[in-house]
Design a protein around this nucleic acid. Structure first.
Lengths: 236, 236
DNA sequence: GAGTGGTCTAGACCACCCA
DNA sequence: GGGTGGTCTAGACCACTCA
């Protein structure tokens, strides 16, 4: 460790890098704090401090007596648990997703802006219907840079229970660090109303999300149309 | 320190209590870590750990070489900075609030449910208009248990720049730990449309927030009507 | 230069999980 | 019972702020 940045930051970033590169996979356990300290030539307290922030971010999960696991974020409940779709009556929805279309094309102006692309870059546009027990609740349009996600394959033949962020990470090595959502009302277009089985022109909520990578580059611009949702903010 | 909870939690809560009670005021500096450790009979490292969470929550601000200050959280930017109202064109709003009405009455069914009250408990209902440079952007209805907030006085004669959470804390010793928001669309009622200066029946967003205390008891049920908003989730 | 927080160490003991 | 993380200590040295 030659750098003059604090050791715990160097250690944190080293771990982060290994996770981002896939050397350490979600679901794996880290070496014990003792072993890490020995390997890195630093003290256990410094290792703890290095992992603390990753735990707070939900990337690692420390389990007393078992070890420290890289969180297998297999659904939006793990990484994006602050954000939920709910039924009009308040019940929480447990959604699966079904692929509708997938196209590679040039981005429109908003997509260029949101993803920091020029008009000649290509994007992959995916539309999905998300439902619970066969009842459609969310219509989704996902736009991602083609360059980063060339290798992405989305099976169309069966429902996806997994969050698409898992596919990004597994297939393309892209990890989502954070997301910003904007919420507006909208009137259901013909495709939205058809999938949600509501009348065209009905009022709906439109959530626009931009998800960014570990390096803070925009990875995804997603639009979700739905009827109600719930946020949990500021967990203890 | 007789309790068998971890010392750093006891120390954290002791600090929190003094802040909530007003013994320590926003803007004050804490005693130095050395002094705190000596006073509490614990080690400096444990004091650090006690303050770490409060720093992360934005309640304390550690300044290298100067000391640790209790954040003067004079606006929603400090505690609830994940949640923003935005203009339709994307600019971020900086809001002041103007009191419209204040009444003490019995809660309706939804208010009973949200605040865990029975129908004989009384609530204080406050309505406010929130605006930016005189342009009304949000209409708000705040419902709080009368018992907890007997001493709350809200000046009606001038704009409130301060977040109402500051008043809760200063005047009634009630601190908000977290909040859950639900978002729906609604059609503007006559009072909403009047204050937002839009046509009655226009579509608007309705944010329903329940804020809870340090002890996880519901403190406030708030409804905000607006045209657009933005969430930032999962800060780095 | 005195005092503050920021980093780091090398230990101790405890609580939990699991074979 | 062996290994893990959780708490806690008592120091060390550094970096920053302010008089």
């Amino acid at each position: 460790m030659l750098e003059n940045r604090p050791l715990y930051l160097q250690a944190r970033d080293a771990l982060m890098r290994q996770i981002a590169e896939g050397t350490l996979q979600p679901g794996d356990f880290l070496p014990s704090e003792q072993q890490l300290a020995a390997t890195l030539g630093i003290s256990v307290g410094t290792v703890r401090k290095a992992t603390e922030e990753l735990v707070a971010q939900g990337i690692l999960d420390r389990q007393h007596g078992r070890g420290t696991q890289i969180v297998p974020h297999t659904s939006d409940r793990s990484r994006f648990r602050f954000f939920r779709f709910i039924h009009p009556d308040g019940r929480q929805a447990r959604l699966t997703a079904r692929l509708l279309t997938r196209k590679t094309q040039n981005p429109n102006r908003e997509e260029q802006l949101r993803l920091s692309l020029s008009k000649n870059d290509q994007v992959i546009v995916i539309t999905r219907a998300r439902s619970e027990n066969g009842v459609p609740l969310v219509f989704e349009r996902i736009c991602i840079p083609a360059k980063r996600f060339e290798r992405l394959s989305v099976e169309s033949d069966r429902d996806m229970v997994e969050e698409i962020y898992v596919l990004y990470q597994k297939q393309c090595g892209e990890m989502v660090r954070s997301a910003t959502d904007e919420i507006e009302y909208d009137l259901a277009s013909s495709s939205v109303s058809k999938e949600l089985k509501i009348a065209a022109g009905s009022p709906v909520l439109l959530v626009k999300r931009v998800a960014v990578s570990l390096a803070n580059e925009p990875l995804e611009f997603r639009q979700s149309w739905t009827q109600a949702l719930r946020y949990r903010s500021h967990l203890e």
